[in-house]
Amino acid sequence: MTTIFNVWDFLLILLYAIIPLAYIIPFALMAVYAERKISAWIQNRVGPNRTGPIGLFQTTADILKLMQKEDIVANGADKKLFLLAPIVVFIGSYAAYAALPFSSVYIGTNINLGVLYMVAISCFVVAGIIFAGWASDNKYSIMGSLRSAAQLVSYEIPTLFVIISIFAITQQFNLRELSEMQTSNILNWGIFGFDGLGYKRILLIPVLFVLMIILFISTLAEVNRTPFDLPEAESELVAGFHTEYSGMKFALFSYLNMQICLLFQGWSLRFSLVDISHHLVTSVICLDCHGLFQ
C-alpha cells in the first residue's frame, strides 16, 4: 500500500498488450494469401495474381475494402448483442496471445499454466459465436452458430486429451519452459520425444506422432477449415453465423478465426520471425504442427 498508483505502469501494460497486434496483422495478411494461393494450386487455378507482384497485396486490398464498407445492422437484429458479439470473439482469440511466448525475450505473462490458459480463454469464442448467431435474427445465422458451437465444444475434448498427455510426458505446464525444452536440436522437438528423457524417448515417438495427427485434425475442426466447414456450409446455410455481418465486424470474425488456426498451428514460424537464431529450421519443417510440438 506504500506505492502510489502510477499511470505509466498502466500505459506500459497497455503497450505490452498491443505488441502481438504488430505481429498478427502482417502475419494474417500473408497467411490468408498463402491459403488462397495454395488451395488455388491444389484445384488447378491461378489464384490471386492481379494486385501487386503475383497478387501479394490482394489480402491488404481486401482489408482496405472491408474497412470502407458500410456497417449494416439488419432491421430485426438485436443491436446491442450484434455489436458486442464480435468483441467477445475478438477477446477470446486475442487474449490467448497473452501466454504465448513469441521469443525467449517477449512473452505477455509467463504464467505457469500457459497451455491451459490458452484452451480456457478460447471458450469465449464459442460464447461469442452463439450470441452473434442469435443477435442476427436470421435462421441461417442461428443454425450456423449452433453447429459451430457444437463443433468447437466437441473438438475441445481431443485437444485437451492431447494436452494432458503432453503434460504427463513433460511434467511442464509453462509454455516458455515447454518451448525451451525443444530448442537447440532437431531431436529435442516434441515429435521426437522431448529433451531430457534419454534414449527412452524412442519408445515415445510413434505415440507422439499419433498425438500430432489428432491435434492437427482437432485444431482444423476448431477453426472450421475445409474438411470441417459444416458450420459455414455455403450450399445449405448462406455463410453460417456471420451471414448478417458486414464491414469491420465481419473482418473481426473471419480474420481472427483464421488467426486462431495459425496461432495453434504455426507458432514455430512466429518464433522464427522474432528469434531467428533459435527457430529457423523448426519453422520450415514443422509449420503445420501444433504449438506443443513446436
Binding site: 452463439i130 465444444v153 475441445e156
Partner: peptide
C-alpha cells in the same frame, strides 16, 4: 491462476454454453 482457468473452462466453456443452448 489454476482456479481462474478452471472457472473459465468449466463455467464459460461448459455451463454457460449449456444454458444458452437451453435458452435456444
Amino acid at each position: 491462476e489454476f482456479l481462474a482457468m478452471v472457472q473459465i473452462l468449466i463455467y464459460v466453456g461448459g455451463v454457460l454454453i449449456l444454458i444458452v443452448f437451453g435458452i435456444m
